[in-house]
C-alpha cells in the first residue's frame, strides 16, 4: 500500500520534482547557454531605465545591462528575452527561476539581500527618494508636506521611507498607494495628490509624461539612500560572479577610456590594464565560464557604463539627469569597480 502510494506520488510529482531538482543542481550559466537566451526581468515602463521605444525595442540603462550580460555570454546583445515585471512581481519571478537576472531599478537592502533568497551584485545607479510637487505650491522642504496627500507605488522601499520620514518628525500625511506606477502618476496628474514620490531618477522619468511638465518641480531634498542594482538568485556563485564582473568590466571600461567606438583599436593598446580587460592578456574569462573576450564583447555591443548612462538618462536623453554621484570615483562620484587582474 505504502509502496504503491509512493510510486503514485512519485509519478504525479515527476514533473515538479525533476524541475526543482534540475533547478537546484545545474548552473544558471549552463541553462542560459542551453536555452540560447538570457531571461532578464525589467521594469514595465520607466523612461531611461527600461521602456520600449517607438519601434518596440527595449531601451534604457537597466536594459543595457541585460544586453551587456548577453554580450558577454553569447557575443550577441540581442539574445535577451525581456520580462517586464511590476514591483510586486519582481522577486517572485527571480526566486521561481522565471528570470535569470533582475535588472529593474531595485534598491539593495539588507532584508532583500539576506531573507529573500536574492543576491545583489553591485550598483548600477546611485539614487535617492525624492518628491515631485506642483510648482505653484512653492515648497522648499519635504517637511512642508505635512497633512498632504502623497501618491506612490506599492511594494517599494519608498512606501517605508515616507512613513519613516514623517514618523521621525511627528508629522502626518495621507498615503495613496497604487499597484502600478501608471495609475499612481495618472492620479497625481488629476490632482488626487499634492506630491508624487519615488526614486529621484523615476521622478524625472515620470515628469516628462505629465500634461504640463514645467508646472512641476522635484524638491531638492532627498530622503533616502537608494542604491539600485542587479540581483540574482542565491546559491549559484559562478553566475553571481559573472553578472557582477560584467558590471565591473562595464565601469572599468569607462575608467580606462575604452568606448564602443575605439574598442577595436584599444585591443592593440600597450596598457596592461586594457589588455587584461579586453582579453589580450591573461585568462580572466575562464573563472566565470566564458571566453577571454567577454569584456570586449560588452564594450563592442553596448558601450561602456558612461556611454550607456549618457545615452539613456543623461545628456543624450530627454531625461537630462546630471551624473553627480553616478560619476566614477576619480571624477568625484561613487562608482568604484575592483580591478581586473
Amino acid at each position: 500500500m505504502r509502496h504503491r502510494t509512493q510510486i503514485l506520488t512519485a509519478a504525479a510529482l515527476g514533473l515538479i520534482a525533476v524541475a526543482s531538482a534540475t533547478h537546484a543542481q545545474s548552473s544558471t550559466l549552463d541553462s542560459v547557454k542551453k536555452r540560447g537566451d538570457l531571461r532578464c526581468g525589467v521594469n514595465i515602463g520607466l523612461a531611461g531605465f527600461s521602456a520600449p521605444d517607438d519601434k518596440g525595442e527595449w531601451t534604457g540603462l537597466d536594459v543595457d545591462f541585460c544586453r551587456a550580460v548577453a554580450s558577454a555570454i553569447f557575443k550577441d546583445p540581442t539574445k535577451v528575452k525581456f520580462v517586464p515585471l511590476s514591483a510586486k512581481e519582481r522577486f517572485t519571478a527571480l526566486q521561481s527561476g522565471e528570470i535569470d537576472l533582475l535588472s529593474r531599478n531595485t534598491t539593495w537592502t539588507m532584508s532583500r539581500d539576506t531573507q529573500q533568497g536574492l543576491a545583489f551584485v553591485g550598483v548600477t545607479y546611485y539614487d535617492g527618494q525624492g518628491f515631485l510637487v506642483k510648482k505653484s505650491l512653492d515648497l522648499k522642504s519635504v517637511a512642508q508636506l505635512a497633512g498632504a496627500s502623497i501618491c506612490m507605488q506599492t511594494g517599494t522601499t519608498n512606501e517605508l521611507n515616507v512613513a519613516d520620514y514623517f514618523r521621525t518628525r511627528s508629522l502626518t500625511y495621507n498615503p495613496v498607494v497604487f499597484e502600478k506606477n501608471e495609475e499612481a502618476v495618472a492620479a497625481f496628474n488629476l490632482g488626487r495628490c499634492d506630491a508624487y514620490t519615488t526614486d529621484a531618477s523615476g521622478l524625472y522619468a515620470q515628469r516628462i509624461k505629465l500634461a504640463d511638465p514645467s508646472a512641476y518641480v522635484v524638491l531638492p531634498e532627498i530622503i533616502s539612500k537608494e542604491p539600485l542594482g542587479p540581483a540574482v538568485r542565491q546559491g549559484d556563485d559562478q553566475w553571481a560572479n559573472l553578472v557582477q564582473w560584467t558590471l565591473f568590466a562595464w565601469l572599468n571600461a569607462e575608467g580606462l577610456g575604452v568606448t564602443q567606438e575605439n574598442v577595436d583599436e584599444m585591443i592593440n593598446s600597450g596598457n596592461p590594464e586594457i589588455r587584461r580587460l579586453l582579453g589580450t592578456e591573461g585568462e580572466y574569462g575562464l573563472g566565470i565560464g566564458l571566453d577571454n573576450d567577454w569584456a570586449y564583447q560588452i564594450v563592442k555591443n553596448v558601450g561602456n557604463y558612461g556611454q550607456s548612462f549618457e545615452r539613456n538618462v543623461g545628456k543624450g536623453s530627454r531625461l537630462d539627469i546630471a551624473r553627480d554621484q553616478n560619476k566614477l570615483w576619480k571624477d568625484g562620484g561613487l562608482h568604484y569597480a575592483p580591478p581586473i587582474r
Partner: peptide
C-alpha cells in the same frame, strides 16, 4: 481595489506585506 489605490486586503496584505516580507 488594488488597481485604484483602495487599501483592501489584497492591496495592503497580499500586496505591500507580501512585498516587504516576501
Amino acid at each position: 481595489a488594488v488597481a485604484i489605490g483602495y487599501p483592501d486586503l489584497v492591496s495592503v496584505f497580499a500586496g505591500t506585506v507580501l512585498n516587504q516580507t516576501n
